[in-house]
Design a protein around this nucleic acid. Structure first.
Lengths: 212, 212
DNA sequence: TAGATTGTTAATCGATTAACAATC
DNA sequence: TAGATTGTTAATCGATTAACAATC
């Protein structure tokens, strides 16, 4: 077990391990070796053992890893062993889709409420939730603590929304606006950037077609 | 200019350069230096010069880079100087949100059609498009060539959908299902993994709270 | 010309992979 | 015990950063 800072690359691989182990467990597997994981996930076996050892010695020489134990350890490391509460800011297409997307709820991320500023949207329904006026957010979080704010506003409102969420004590921000919002240290942030992903795809299409 | 393979890390930074230069151009900036970009983007200035030099010597000693020229070069490199056609497979929450999201259309990614298999969805409207039966996809792409397929199906149908898209000659796949789909060489693929991003956020929340 | 800034080589840093002793 | 596989150190690889000559 390594007590140093966890490299970003390792953190980004944790969800892959988790998804893999969850599937293995559902299929009834009880043990797995780093070499089997290597074959299935396409990561180097040394890398897998090294990654897992950042968090503790979960394996056993000569045997490998216990699938249920390793899955539950990784869930614990990622904080997936408890529920998270989420508030969605912006009830446009993406905001509504996220509220309606039951997969997140099934994985423990519960949408407590969805907010918007547009009078035409306030009061409408989205995913079984009444869309509330953003002006009620402050009061709402006083009654119902919420950890994660999801920014689904237009780009122009994204940074202001982030500032508001920080001021109201949100501890994590999941940003879908196509801009890197800035938050102070202590607030966790994931900028999603769907656009960037599409741009990278366009790049590859162009590169594939022009290089041969 | 460097004729070797472009590192993945450089490709992932291209969208950031593009967004930045677009904004600079809209504000009327005509020149920019690597050191100014470094301050604004938070990348090292050497890295920026090195990145841009992968594709060509776009700068001028003593002056820097022309904003409009660099923006248009990067647009060309990423294939953003032309339109792309897109078909969305799966008219659930995310599929419908993507069809309705006009930002993609504004950036040159036009949704030609949206498909589903559920009788309850077929014939309904989403973002001004009639939802078509997936069985019509083959016929559709014969008449209207489509480059990019967007997988918005449930996880269980994702790989089959990818296989179908490959068979029908799609050149790029943008996958929103929470699984790494496999495609043969020559087909470009971006797995989005919204879940993974949320898991990483949960990890950081947990790490922030337990390390101090 | 003098000043500025690129393009590019060299140095550093960090991440990945290989190797193997420890041990179940 | 013998075989298997981890945990961990050492070697390699690649990406980032620093330095500076080239040159506008």
């Amino acid at each position: 077990m390594n007590k140093e800072r966890i490299p970003e690359a390792v953190i980004r691989r944790l969800p892959k391990y988790f998804r893999y182990l969850k599937e293995m467990e559902e299929r009834g597997a009880v043990r797995v070796s780093s070499s089997k994981m290597s074959r299935d996930l396409g990561f180097n076996a040394s890398q897998i053992r090294r990654d897992l050892n950042c968090f503790g010695g979960f394996g056993q020489q000569g045997y490998g890893y216990s699938v249920p134990k390793l899955r539950s350890e990784i869930a614990r490391i990622m904080g997936l062993n408890r529920e998270h509460t989420v508030a969605v800011i912006g009830a446009g297409n993406i905001g509504q889709a996220l509220v309606s997307y039951d997969r997140f709820a099934r994985e423990g991320f519960k949408v407590a409420a969805i907010f918007d500023v547009a009078p035409g949207r306030i009061g409408q329904e989205a995913g079984g939730q009444r869309i509330r006026p953003l002006s009620e957010l402050e009061e709402f979080v006083k009654k119902t603590p919420v950890e994660i704010g999801v920014i689904c506003t237009p780009q122009s409102a994204a940074q202001d929304t982030a500032d508001l969420l920080v001021r109201l004590g949100f501890r994590g921000i999941w940003n879908f606006a196509p801009i890197d919002v800035q938050v102070p240290a202590g607030v966790s942030l994931e900028n999603v950037h769907l656009n960037d992903s599409l741009y990278v795809l366009a790049y590859r299409l162009r590169a594939e077609s022009s290089e041969i």
